[in-house]
Simulated scan of single mutants.
Amino acid sequence: MRRRTFLSAPLLLPALTLAAPARAPIAYPAVGAGVRLAFPRDHGAHPDFRSEWWYVTGALDSPQADTGFQLTFFRSRPGTAEALQSPIAARQILFAHAALTVPGERLLHAERARLLHAERAARANLGAGFSIVDCDVHIGAWRMSREDRRSGELFRLQMQSPQFSYDFTLTPSQPLLLQGDGGYSRKGNGPELASYYVSWPQLQVDGTLIVDGKRQVASGRAWFDHEWSTAILDGLAVGWDWLGVNLDGGGALMAFRMRDARRATLFAHATWRDAEGRVRQFDAADVSFTPLRNWSSARSGASYPVQMEIRIGELTLRTRPVLDDQELSASRPTAVVYWEGLVHVEGSLSGRGYLEMTGYAGRLRL
């Protein structure tokens, strides 16, 4: 097995209490066009950049159709402990969100549909770690990793919580999809408002799902995203709407828009790859999001357009959520509320995917 380089240390390493010197401004690297991404290296972490996430969503067909799952690991370089000489200084913070959408049985004694979610957080070298040469990030027993096997490469997802757990393998059925210009994905009108962005649609899911103590065999399809950046929100942006869809027949569609406080679009983009592998990119003028129906959260007070019409060039799509209440409220390391849920997509193209809506319960802070 290939040796991997990790930023990690023994968990029993004694804590060091050091006085922090005066902070100098952090020189985060900028995202720029023309960088050639290389794999598996760029599946790994990019710790110089301010923010990074590895994101997997999926729709299961068994043990129950339209069961949705999400597992996201985030890495943040907050810039608050750069000068400390401790190996456990909080220079790199890792946190993770996991969710499971349970659609509910349509039987006489039906269990209501529900969203289950859990979270973890730790600093690198103190209960968490990441590889800088391949995708391998963990917080305790939660882990997302890529492996090379004789039969080919795969990803593995592992997480556990009192209400639900899963251990999934994700097997690619098609090549990586580099978003934007070879992975350079604009998020605003300024060239610095960008991320490096890699997707892997149409991953075959197999493994084990445990819900309320019941272990079941699971299978379905998933979508993998990996992004790293320094700045993606301009001063007017409060959040974004994002959609990633595994299309019926084998294609893939990604679309997003950045929104201001009035819910007007500041910037938008979309990528469509058909089942034959042909890719089309759509600029902001060709992409629009129109709310069709809102759902309001009694917890946060936010109102989310859970059904939307999305126009992409000549295509017209409509989202239909499996469950209206797919709002996640996380508290570690800081409070954040957003809607992230499994939806059916109908219209010019059809499939299942995840709709993510941030900034509806207050401006998103990265």
Rank of each mutant, 00 (worst) to 15 (best):
R3C: 08
P10C: 01
L16W: 11
A19I: 15
P29C: 05
H43C: 07
V56D: 07
T67P: 02
G68M: 02
Q70V: 01
S76N: 14
P78M: 14
I88Q: 15
A89W: 04
A89G: 02
R91Y: 00
P103R: 03
R106D: 11
H109S: 06
H109C: 05
R123W: 15
A124T: 10
I132R: 01
C135Q: 15
D136K: 00
V137G: 00
S145L: 13
R149V: 03
R150K: 13
G152M: 10
L154M: 07
L154H: 13
F155A: 00
R156G: 03
D167G: 02
Q174V: 07
L176D: 14
G183Y: 10
P191I: 12
V205F: 09
G207I: 09
G207F: 09
R221G: 04
D225T: 06
T230A: 10
L236K: 14
G244S: 08
G249L: 12
G250V: 08
L253W: 06
R257L: 07
R257W: 02
A261Q: 14
T271G: 03
W272P: 14
G277V: 13
V279Q: 06
D283H: 14
D283W: 14
D286L: 04
D286Q: 15
S288P: 04
N294E: 15
W295R: 12
A302N: 05
P305I: 13
V306A: 03
Q307D: 04
E309Q: 15
P321D: 05
W339E: 03
G351K: 06
R352W: 09
L366W: 00
